[in-house]
Design a protein around this nucleic acid. Structure first.
Length: 664
RNA sequence: GCCGCUUUAGCUCAGUCGGUAGAGCACAUCAUUCGUAAUGAUGGGGUCAGAGGUUCGAAUCCUCUAAGCGGCACCA
C-alpha cells in the first residue's frame, strides 16, 4: 500500500503523492493562496470534497469561487445542510428528509413535530444558521453501511430517512456528513470543508410551503423551507434586485395597470378581457390566421357542448372527468322548492379540448388518401375545471382558447408534417422575439395503444426534430420519460416568464390512438380502408397564456404592432386642439390605433401618464406644430423627441406598426 | 385538491390593549393654457371578503366558507 498515486493537474503536470493525500493537500503544496481559495475539487471530472482522499491515479482540477457553477452548487448544498441542522436545533423532534440545491438556492423538506413552519419562523432559523456558520464546524465525510444507517435513523426517530436508507441502491457507497461532532445527515455530497466557508450574509430564507414526501400526493405533506444562496452578499443583493424587477413585470400587475383584463371570484379562472387587452388578443388571432392560411390549414368551428358519450369514447371521460364541466341535458325545474334537475337527464360536457370534434368533421364523407394531409385549425375555446391551486393569472385558467389544429395524414407524411410544423413554430416565436426550448415527452405509465404505436410515434417525433436541427443544447433539447399524453408522445415548446418559471406553449403530438377509438379512416391507393395518423398541434398553446408571457417578456412595452394604443396625440395648449384632432383623424385613416389627449393638463402630466400606459409613440403638438403642420414625436423609453412633418410621422408609424410577417 | 399566508375606499396600504374607519393615488367640481415622467384647491366615496360565534361592545378574538398569493401535486 505504499505505492504512489499519480495526480495530473490541468496544466498537464503530474504529482506523485502517497495514499491518503487530499486535493486540499495538493492545493497547500502549490501555494497558500490557492489553499485558501480552493473550496472543492473536480476529480476525474466529478465534483468532490476537497478533503476527500484520492482513491487512485486521477485528473485533478481545484475548484475556487471563480468556477462559479461548481462553487454555487457546493455552497447551496451546504446551506441546505446547515438549514437542516439549524431547524433541528430550534425545533427538536422535527424530522429531516431531503434538501437539494436549486437554480437560485436551496430548500429542505422537514416533517415538523407539532405544526408546519410559517414565514414567521424564518428569522430565527436564519439566525441559528449564522451561528452554525460562525462555529466553522468541519464537514466530514464517512462511509456507512446500510444497516448502520437504518439503525441510526430508526433510533433517532427519523422514519423518513430510515425508509430512504433502506431503498438506496445497494451498489453505491453510502455516506454521511458530520457537521462538527454532534450532527449528521445522510448525503452523497460533496460539501465544503467546513461551515465557516459559507458567507453568512450570502443567503436568505425566502418562503415556506408544503411539499409531498417523494413528490407523491398519496404521501405525507412535509414542510419545505426555501432559501436563496450565493457566494457573497453582492451576488445575493443582485439576485434580490432581479426579483424586485421581475415582480414589476408580472402580467397580473401590468394587466391591471394597463387596463388589459381582470379576473374576479364570480368567474374565477376565467378572463374578463377589457378593450385594450382584447385588442392584443385580436392582433394575435389575425396573425395566427395569416400564418395558418399560408401553411395550408383550413379553419373550422365546433360545438362548445357535446354529449358525454363522445368523451367516453375518446377516453377523456375516464381519465379527466373530474376536470370537466358536466351539464345535464335538461330544462331545469323552475319551481322554487324542489330539485333543479330530475337526476335522470343525459349528460353533456363543455369541451375540454377540440380533438374529438375535429375527428367528427374528418369522418363526414368518405376520405381518400388524396385528401391527406388534411389540416383542420380552430380557435378552440375549451373549459377545464383545473385544481384551484393550479390557477395562475392568465397562465393557467379554466376557460381558454387554443390555437389548435389536427393534421390527419398518412404514415409516410408524418415526418414532413412535423418538420414543417417545427419551422412554422420557429418562425412564429421569432416573430415575437422569443427564444424557446424544446422537449420530447415520452410514453406515460397509464396509456392507450400498443407498444409498437408508441415506438413509432416517439421515433418519428425525435427524427423530425433531429432533421430540423433542433435537438441541441442550444434549444434546451431533452427527453422527458413518462410525461407524454395518454394517447401520444408530445414535442413541447417552452417559454420562460419574468421570474424564470417555464411554461409550455407549443406542442405537436403523433397520435394513433384517437383515430382508432373514434374510428377515423380513409381509402388508400390499394382501395382498402386505413387509419390516418392524427397530429395534434398548437403554437401559442392558448391565447391567454401566450399573452401573459408576451406581457412579461416585454414588461408591458409591447412591440408597436401589438400595442393596444399605438400612438397618442397630446396637446400642450388648447389652441392646438383642432390640429390635434385633424392629425388623429389622419393617423386613424392610415390604420394606426391612435387616441388624442386634449385634456387641460400639463404636458409633463400627459407624458408621464401615457409613458406608464406603455404607449409606443407620443405625438406632442403645441402652437408651433399646429402652425407648421409638424409633430414632436417621443418614442417610449427615450428622452428626446424628433420633430417632423405630420405626413412623415404617419409614414413612420405605418411602417412601425406593420406586423413582422407582413414586412417586406 | 394539499401546506402556509392574505382579504379594510376603484388601486396601493395604515389601523396599538376589542371601544364604533384613515392616508396617498384615482374619481368629480372649480381655478390654471402650461414645451416632454405628477399644477393647486374643494368634494364624494367603505355591510372592514361572506356566514356564524364569543363579548356590554368585533376590522381586531374563534369557527366555517370563498377567493387571491407562494409552493406541492395536477396540467388531455
Amino acid at each position: 500500500m505504499s505505492e504512489l498515486l499519480k495526480i495530473t493537474l490541468p496544466d498537464g503536470s503530474v504529482r506523485e503523492v502517497t495514499r491518503g493525500t487530499t486535493p486540499a493537500d495538493i492545493a497547500a503544496a502549490i501555494g497558500p493562496g490557492l489553499a485558501k481559495a480552493a473550496i472543492g475539487a473536480r476529480v476525474d471530472g466529478e465534483l468532490f470534497d476537497i478533503t476527500r482522499p484520492f482513491e487512485g491515479d486521477a485528473q485533478l482540477a481545484l475548484v475556487t469561487a471563480k468556477d462559479e457553477a461548481d462553487a454555487l452548487e457546493l455552497v447551496r448544498h451546504d446551506f441546505a445542510h446547515v438549514l437542516a441542522e439549524a431547524v433541528q436545533a430550534l425545533f427538536p423532534g422535527t424530522q429531516i428528509t431531503f434538501g437539494p440545491s436549486t437554480d437560485d438556492g436551496f430548500y429542505y423538506d422537514f416533517a415538523p413535530k407539532d405544526r408546519p413552519f410559517t414565514e414567521e419562523d424564518l428569522p430565527a432559523i436564519e439566525a441559528q444558521m449564522r451561528k452554525i456558520i460562525a462555529a466553522d464546524k468541519p464537514l466530514k465525510r464517512e462511509a456507512w453501511s446500510r444497516e448502520d444507517l437504518i439503525k441510526r435513523w430508526t433510533e433517532q426517530g427519523e422514519t423518513f430517512k430510515a425508509e430512504w436508507a433502506a431503498e438506496l441502491p445497494g451498489d453505491e457507497e453510502l455516506t454521511v456528513y458530520w457537521s462538527g461532532g454532534d450532527w449528521l445527515d445522510m448525503c452523497r455530497g460533496p460539501h465544503l470543508a467546513s461551515t465557516g466557508k459559507l458567507d453568512p450574509n450570502a443567503f436568505k430564507l425566502t418562503r415556506v410551503s408544503g411539499a409531498y414526501w417523494r413528490g407523491d400526493q398519496a404521501n405525507a405533506m412535509l414542510s419545505r423551507v426555501y432559501g436563496t444562496g450565493w457566494l457573497n452578499k453582492k451576488q445575493l443583493d443582485a439576485h434580490m434586485l432581479r426579483l424586485e424587477e421581475a415582480a414589476k413585470r408580472d402580467h397580473r400587475k401590468l394587466g391591471a395597470e394597463m387596463d388589459l383584463f381582470h379576473l374576479q371570484a364570480e368567474a374565477h379562472g376565467s378572463v374578463f378581457w377589457h378593450p385594450k387587452g382584447f385588442r392584443i388578443y385580436r392582433e394575435l388571432e389575425a396573425y395566427m390566421r395569416r400564418a395558418i392560411d399560408g401553411a395550408g390549414y383550413r379553419e373550422v368551428k365546433t360545438p362548445q357542448v357535446m354529449d358525454a358519450r363522445q368523451w367516453e369514447q375518446s377516453g377523456h371521460w375516464g381519465k379527466y372527468r373530474e376536470n370537466m364541466f358536466v351539464i345535464p341535458d335538461e330544462v331545469p325545474n323552475t319551481e322554487d322548492e324542489g330539485p333543479v334537475i330530475s337526476g335522470d337527464a343525459d349528460w353533456m360536457a363543455l369541451k375540454p379540448m377540440n380533438c374529438p370534434a375535429h375527428v367528427l368533421i374528418f369522418r363526414q364523407g368518405l376520405k381518400s388518401y388524396r385528401d391527406l394531409p388534411l389540416r383542420l385549425y380552430e380557435n378552440g375555446c375549451c373549459h377545464r375545471n383545473e385544481p384551484h391551486g393550479a390557477l395562475h393569472g392568465l397562465m393557467r385558467v379554466r376557460q381558454f382558447t387554443q390555437d389548435d389544429a389536427h393534421i390527419f395524414c398518412r404514415e409516410d407524411q408524418i415526418i414532413d408534417e412535423v418538420r414543417a410544423f417545427c419551422a412554422l413554430a420557429d418562425r412564429v416565436y421569432k416573430d415575437f422575439g422569443f427564444t424557446y426550448s424544446i422537449k420530447l415527452a415520452l410514453r406515460p405509465e397509464k396509456r392507450f395503444g400498443t407498444e409498437e404505436m408508441w415506438d413509432m410515434a416517439e421515433t418519428e417525433l425525435r427524427a423530425a426534430v433531429v432533421e430540423a436541427g433542433l435537438a441541441t443544447p442550444e434549444y434546451g433539447w431533452e427527453e422527458l420519460p413518462g410525461e407524454g399524453a395518454f394517447y401520444a408522445p408530445k414535442l413541447e415548446w417552452h417559454l420562460t416568464d419574468a421570474i424564470g418559471r417555464t411554461w409550455q406553449v407549443g406542442t405537436i403530438q403523433s397520435d394513433r390512438v384517437l383515430p382508432e377509438r373514434l374510428d377515423a379512416g380513409y381509402v388508400a391507393e390499394d382501395g382498402e380502408k386505413h387509419r390516418p395518423v392524427m397530429l395534434h398541434r398548437a403554437i401559442f398553446g392558448s391565447y391567454e397564456r401566450f399573452i401573459g408571457i408576451l406581457i412579461e417578456h416585454f414588461a408591458g412595452k409591447l412591440p408597436t404592432w401589438l400595442a393596444p394604443v399605438q400612438a397618442v396625440v397630446a396637446t400642450i395648449v388648447s389652441d392646438a386642439d383642432d390640429y390635434a384632432t385633424e392629425a388623429t383623424a389622419q393617423l386613424r385613416t392610415a390604420g394606426i390605433r391612435v387616441e388624442s389627449d386634449l385634456r387641460n393638463e400639463k404636458i409633463n402630466y400627459k407624458v408621464r401618464e401615457h409613458s406608464l400606459q406603455k404607449v409606443p409613440f407620443l405625438l406632442v403638438v403645441g402652437k408651433r406644430e399646429a402652425e407648421e403642420g409638424t409633430v414632436a414625436i417621443r418614442v417610449l423609453g427615450e428622452q428626446q423627441q424628433r420633430f417632423m412633418p405630420l405626413a412623415d410621422a404617419i409614414a413612420l408609424l405605418k411602417s412601425e406598426a406593420t406586423p413582422p410577417d407582413l414586412r417586406a
